[in-house]
Design a protein around this nucleic acid. Structure first.
Lengths: 283, 283
DNA sequence: AAGAAAAATGTAATTTTTTGACATTTTTTG
DNA sequence: CAAAAAATGTCAAAAAATTACATTTTTCTT
């Protein structure tokens, strides 16, 4: 586990002096990894062995080993989630915190994803007669995005924002149709009902939602994305971002599965757009 | 830059002994970060100062500093490979590659962002009489998402997918209105025209687009997001994800600026949604 | 609330690790 | 082939981290 999160979590279990060390490190981890144990001890106003004991408590071999772990936590690509925006943050701070926690959520999401199901869903999609993407509220824009991506593939794809339209669309579905439902919590009543309707009409229902949710129970396949809950108010909805990335994964899997001829086709679609754009200067 | 790549690249510039060190490190970087300079020297069959000199040649302060860099390179699991999806990737591979490249793009985007402009745009938004979010194609879903987020803030916010509606809406704009235009390339003709119309009608135009693009030229403020271009076909549109994250940043800045009473209000909106959801079991 | 036990912390010495100075070897170049 | 330059190693000094132990603080018992 990320050692910065570990520090944050264990904070209560620390002794008074150890907590002082923790504060200093959390306040400025970048400085910490470039300091010697003596410097850090002075900054925390404790003795050197205390810093050493602090390191050991976090299951590291000692101070140098601790620094290694810390460096890894700070490395690009593995930011830590616990960077919560608070009231007094300036633009610089909240911008960085949001980007970092978004990246961290993506990492968590990736790990929670079951690749086998991804593969099976890609299979399904390539063979589908019709694909529908539905979501409500914040997830609506994700469905919207999916529409955009899959539309280029020249497959029959459908998206409605309106619940009634979603229901009607599902009423008319048949075997071979795939309905993809997107919901972070998986507790939105109307969406669960849409799932039921789709299933009753022999469509295959794929849920992009959290495991064990009411929605998940109604789905044929569940692509579960466990993203840290947006506990506090400022927390951006990282779930959407994870969902979008998953859509990218599905779209990519789709393209790969369809093979070469299909990809050429895709290129033609891209070229068609050119007319609506200003040319790029060749500089 | 990733230090492992750096070693690979500079390999030719190294001296004979230094190359020996390089080999040993590249062969087993994990071992390297947990060894002392003495151990590593013995493994490479060179003297300790040689290892030290090797570290310095790579622009590090010394051996411990080198280990820190190395640890960071090793942090995100897959160190020195360029992560592009290729034809022969299995589900496991392309899933990981997409997640990783998305995270990497976010990092790049964050660094390209000018915080001062973020701050000024947040200012603008908090004082706006009306906020419009417009985008076309893939960026439409980003605008859609922005609508969702800002709608909760109980401010007059507008979003149209249709170009004609966008134009009409801008025709009617006045001083105090803010129009946010989203486009990765900034070369979509109709959107550039929308920007011109908005400006002619005294609206402030904010562009979320790439610097120096035709669209950027027409904007009052440009939030430039330099995201690696989707050069190859499989590359997902990471730009959207960066745009969404930026929307999160703006929304967060907005909330912070509005202060406490506003946040309580926000909580009430959230509570209202509860009726439409299945309760979470308390387990 | 006093005193004993346990836990936490600091001091100082020891050990380990890293670095610097300089000698020796190897390589390069005219 | 010799002289200069570069590379490498040896050894000692310096820096850093760790250990052992003393002192202080906290906790628990009576």
């Amino acid at each position: 586990m990320n050692i910065l999160e570990k520090i944050t979590q264990n904070k209560t279990a620390f002794s008074k002096s150890e907590r002082k060390v923790a504060e200093v490190i959390l306040a400025n981890p970048q400085t910490a990894i470039h300091s010697s144990i003596a410097t850090l001890a002075k900054m925390s106003d404790v003795s050197e062995p205390t810093v050493n004991r602090f390191c050991r408590r976090l299951d590291t071999k000692g101070f140098p080993d601790f620094k290694l772990h810390l460096a890894q936590s700070l490395a690009n690509g593995t930011p830590y989630v616990n960077r919560h925006v608070d009231e007094n943050d300036g633009p610089d701070e909240y911008t960085n915190k949001i980007f970092e926690s978004t990246m961290a959520s993506l990492e968590v999401a990736r790990q929670s994803l079951d690749v086998n199901i991804v593969n099976r869903v890609v299979d399904l999609l390539t063979q589908a007669q019709k694909i529908s993407f539905f979501g409500l509220g914040a997830s609506a824009s994700v469905a919207h995005d999916a529409l955009n991506k899959f539309f280029r593939f020249n497959v029959p794809v459908v998206y409605f924002e309106d619940v009634l339209m979603q229901r009607m669309s599902c009423m008319n579905s048949t075997t071979g149709d795939v309905v993809v439902l997107i919901s972070h919590t998986g507790r939105t009543k109307s969406l669960v009902e849409v799932a039921q309707i789709a299933r009753m009409n022999d469509a295959t229902v794929v849920g992009i939602t959290s495991e064990d949710s009411p929605l998940a129970q109604e789905c044929t396949y569940v692509l579960s994305l466990e993203v840290p809950e947006d506990t506090d108010m400022y927390m951006p909805m990282a779930s959407r971002i994870a969902q979008l990335t998953l859509i990218d994964v599905l779209a990519t899997g789709f393209t790969l599965r369809r093979g070469n001829k299909f990809r050429e086709n895709l290129k033609r679609v891209k070229d068609t757009l050119r007319g609506s754009r200003y040319e790029k200067r060749n500089d």
